[in-house]
Amino acid sequence: MSKHFVSAIVNGDEVEFRCDSGETLLDVLRTKLYLTGTKNGCGTGDCGACTVLMNGRAINSCLVLGAECSDMSIETIEGMAVGGELHPLQQKFLDHAALQCGVCTPGILNMAKALLKENSNPSETEVRFGLAGNLCRCTGYDKIVRAVMDAAAEMRARRT
């Protein structure tokens, strides 16, 4: 296994790490950078628990190699609240009880953040299809969908 020396931006900070060719970004985040807020539910791209933003797009960090991340900008759940203030999505998830066990939550929040960047006023159907890559086994999705739509409304209101 060859080693790679990678520098990237994580949550706005420059970071450097060494990784094997086979190690994924998820491995790197969790074990090298100790950002354990990004969860591993499957490792095969099917659950979305590992969702982070890479250069602004939501990706499954389990399906990206650490070695591919040179100069990339990564946003994880740890960087979502800024300056002690929760992101509207985080706040709405709490307000709507959109989590039970919470293990799917970091991935869903990141996916929702990317979604709202593309579409600031999504319909229920758009939210549901937008989150289809994020499994939640606890909530039945109802409150998650409501929270995302409410956060979208709040973010629209803040902008105007």
């Binding site: 791209g45 979305g48 969702t51 890479m54 797009r57 939501a58 990706i59 499954n60 399906l63 990206v64 996916m111 990317a114 979604l115 937008g130 289809a132 890559g133 994020n134």
Partner: peptide, 9 residues
């Protein structure tokens, strides 16, 4: 092909 996340890749 796959989810939004997959589509990014």
């Amino acid at each position: 092909i796959g989810s939004h996340q997959i589509q990014s890749r």
